[in-house]
Nucleic acid binder design. Structure first.
Lengths: 257, 257
DNA sequence: TCATTTACTGAACTGTTGTTCATATTTTGT
DNA sequence: ACAAAATATGAACAACAGTTCAGTAAATGA
């Protein structure tokens, strides 16, 4: 009875079916548990982004999250699962922004601008942006497949957005897949050089990138409004949202072992 | 006398001053030694590109280069030095292309196109392209500093190319630093998705990227010639050039320990 | 208050990593 | 052909990774 008490809640949150996990997210202890999970994800995501996945040790993550290394295993099954959730959060945010842009009643250029700005915010935000979605390898096949599906869905959405613009004549005729990859490449690569203490804020980078990347697509570039009506980056520091907590609890079903 | 004979040539090539090293590159044994070094670099660069630096073990490199792991240390001081030379080769090629474009008597757009195409060739070429220059961390400070200087020189060159185009009015007014980073980001990220067995060849990707990325800069985009006079990618499979061999021999002076 | 669950930890375990060493095999110069 | 230099290797080493475990401290609920 003594040896089994440790790790019990984590085991419940991770290994059991999602209905049990979600029911546990109510109540005080469940809340604290999930909040701590997110703290860890935040710390790990930052470390992954600045140092890379393989270069970041569990002891580093533990130190950054102010935990003992062993305690990490009360919240996650292992390093791979931490990476998985980091990527999952990022991808879900991006997909949400994409779908918001889709529903927008606006030109293709304005939709694309919203996607670009949201993508950069998700990836560059110093506090919680977990650029870990940039990494793919070294995950168990099942988790990896799950992420690849999401990533492909996102990319496909961007492609369709560009293709739609080209169909209406707002954009120049082009290969939407290639253009989308150029755009997303420029965005994703930004984590490699962006410095939050540097000359440009994330919002300024986003504006500049959007101007340039959209201009290359527009059939009549001079019609581009330099200052688009889409609102700029606001509140670069954002806390984890309640729906994130919810989703984390539900996502346990993707774990294996 | 017996224990010292092993590793002696490698030691000469790596640790001693460069004049001694370069003098050794003549003669049969020296040639074979340097050729093998390049074979190793090629194999390692490919592995680094597909798996990442930390994820690639010395045993993997040895297997890919058809060597015993221990034998690697007859050619390089260690893993970090292999990474260093991979990055060094890539950067030198890119800088060479940049300076060739500079000397070109052509429009800024054509110069930029040459740089873009060369960059993608260097980075995507299945056979010898060592995209390892994408990685930076985990190198001894001295080696790292050397690479950062080269990379910054290259980036600065691209910036100046864009700035010059903007000055003459050929390009739209913009932040050259930001535009350069967007361009280079799109190019560098290509190694993450490009599949040599996929639908598009490296040359086709290069053309499409160049069209799009340059179009975003042009003040009068419709003046863009879709098929620029700059020759397309030729002979995607290229062997290591003699000057590469020479440079490798000279570069030993950057090593430490 | 007390018993039980939850949260946490130091130390140890296991596998892998980069690396070295003693030695064997091949190549070179004479 | 023979000694010396050069090239190559299997086996082992030390360090470190992710992970586990026995057990302690804290929180919870009655």
């Amino acid at each position: 009875m003594l040896a089994q008490c440790g790790r019990s809640f984590a085991a419940r949150g991770i290994q059991l079916s999602n209905n049990r996990a979600t029911s546990q997210s109510n109540g005080r202890v469940g809340r604290r548990y999930l909040a701590r999970r997110l703290e860890i994800l935040r710390a790990a995501g930052k470390q992954f982004r600045v140092s890379g996945f393989a270069e970041t040790g569990m002891r580093d993550i533990a130190a950054a999250a102010d935990l003992s290394p062993a305690n990490l295993y009360n919240y996650f099954q292992g390093k791979h699962e931490i990476l998985f959730f980091c990527q999952d959060v990022s991808l879900d945010r991006m997909i949400a922004a994409l779908e918001k842009a889709r529903r927008l009643r606006a030109s293709a250029a304005e939709k694309l601008r919203l996607v670009i700005v949201s993508h950069l915010r998700c990836v560059l935000d110093e506090v919680e942006g977990s650029a870990a979605h940039l990494l793919t390898s070294a995950l168990p096949p099942r988790l990896q497949r799950c992420l690849v599906v999401k990533r492909d869905r996102y990319e496909e959405g961007v492609r369709q957005l560009i293709a739609a613009g080209a169909r209406t004549g707002e954009f120049v005729p082009c290969d939407p897949a290639l253009a989308a990859r150029a755009v997303l490449g420029a965005l994703n690569w930004s984590v490699r050089w962006f410095n939050p203490d540097g000359a440009l804020t994330a919002a300024e980078v986003a504006e500049g990138f959007a101007d340039y990347l959209i201009r290359g697509l527009l059939a009549k570039p001079d019609s581009l409004r330099r200052h688009s009506p889409v609102r700029k980056l606001q509140s670069p520091i954002r806390k984890f949202l309640p729906q994130d907590v919810k989703r984390h609890a539900e996502a346990g079903r993707f774990s294996e072992r």
